[in-house]
Amino acid sequence: MERYVLRLFVAGQTQSSLQARHNLDRICADHLKGKCDITVTDIFEDSDLAEAPKVLATPTLIKEWPAPLRRIIGDLSDTQKVLAALSLIPPAPAT
């Protein structure tokens, strides 16, 4: 399995930020066998890093590798949607 390069933008210690970090760690361990480089950026500490990827929402997860680049917003609690966005499972059929 390829190594995943993921960047997570959070806003300090808010509920959804903490939740997103927790969920991402879990998904990485359960579904990626730990093969992921995760960088967490707190926009309160370094908002400049949010400029180039044009981050609006927090939390935002950006899958930088493997291609294609994907942008996932929210606290990552909908695991099926996250896995589909990471191309780990086929996307859910539209209802």
Binding site: A20, S47, E51, T58, D78
Partner: peptide, 28 residues
């Protein structure tokens, strides 16, 4: 503060979020 959409950039929502990043970028 560039928040224009990027080509092929469909946003996937997976839970609670807010626009703190945007507000912070504008403030900064």
């Amino acid at each position: 503060v560039d928040a224009s959409p990027q080509p092929g950039d469909g946003t996937i929502v997976t839970g609670d979020f807010d626009l703190t990043a945007l507000v912070t970028r504008i403030e900064r």
